[in-house]
C-alpha cells in the first residue's frame, strides 16, 4: 500500500476490524456500508448478523461479549433513534460497544425525511451515554476507527463513529 492515505476509505475498515479481533458484525444495511458488509461476509473469521431493527444489535453484541467475542455494529443515522432504550443495556453493564454510523440528512440531503434523525443523531447518542467521534475526510477514517475500537474494547465503553455524509457522498436520486 502507498504511504499516502488510501482515498478509497471504504476498503480500509475491514482490515481494522480484523486487527481489533471483531468476530460478530451486526448490521442493518446502508449503501454507505456496502463494501464493508461484503468484506465481512466474505471473511470466514467473522459472523455477519443482519437485523430487522438496530435495537437488536445492542443485545447481539452484549451476548457476543458474554460469550467471549468482540462485535461491531453497522447502521445508518436513521437507525440511531431505534437504539436509545436498548443502549441502557450497553451502558449500565459497561459492555464494549463499537458502532459505525453512516450519516444522512446533513450534507446536500435530497430526502427531507432523513433530516430530523440525521440532525438528532449525535445528541441522541450522547444522551444515551455513547461517546461520539466523527470522520469528515477520507484520511480521518483509519485513525478514528482504530482509536474508537481501542477505546471501546480497552476501556469497556460505548463508542459511535459517525461517517459524515460529505465523506460518503450525497445519495443520487
Amino acid at each position: 500500500m502507498d504511504s499516502t492515505v488510501d482515498l478509497d476509505w471504504r476498503r480500509t475498515i475491514h482490515p481494522l476490524f480484523r486487527t481489533a479481533g471483531i468476530r460478530q458484525v451486526a448490521y442493518v444495511p446502508d449503501a454507505g456500508h456496502t463494501a464493508l458488509i461484503e468484506a465481512c461476509h466474505a471473511d470466514p473469521s467473522m459472523r455477519t448478523v443482519v437485523l430487522t431493527n438496530e435495537a437488536e444489535g445492542m443485545g447481539v453484541l452484549a451476548g457476543a461479549w458474554l460469550g467471549g467475542q468482540r462485535g461491531a455494529m453497522l447502521m445508518q443515522s436513521s437507525g440511531v433513534g431505534n437504539c436509545v432504550n436498548a443502549l441502557s443495556l450497553t451502558t449500565i453493564c459497561r459492555f464494549p460497544f463499537l458502532a459505525l454510523v453512516t450519516m444522512r440528512g446533513e450534507w446536500g440531503e435530497f430526502n427531507s425525511w432523513q433530516v430530523p434523525m440525521g440532525q438528532g443523531t449525535e445528541a441522541a447518542l450522547k444522551g444515551a451515554g455513547v461517546i461520539v467521534q466523527r470522520c469528515e475526510r477520507p484520511e480521518d477514517v483509519v485513525p478514528t476507527v482504530e482509536a474508537a475500537a481501542a477505546l471501546a474494547f480497552d476501556s469497556e465503553v460505548a463508542v459511535a463513529v459517525l461517517l459524515s455524509q460529505r465523506l460518503i457522498g450525497r445519495k443520487k436520486f
Partner: peptide, 21 residues
C-alpha cells in the same frame, strides 16, 4: 444473565451468546 431493563433484548442476547459459544 438477568435483565432488569432493555425490554426486547433477551432473545438478541441469546443469539449473540449462542453464536459466540
Amino acid at each position: 444473565f438477568y435483565l432488569w431493563g432493555a425490554m426486547g433484548a433477551a432473545a438478541p442476547i441469546g443469539l449473540g451468546l449462542a453464536l459466540a459459544q
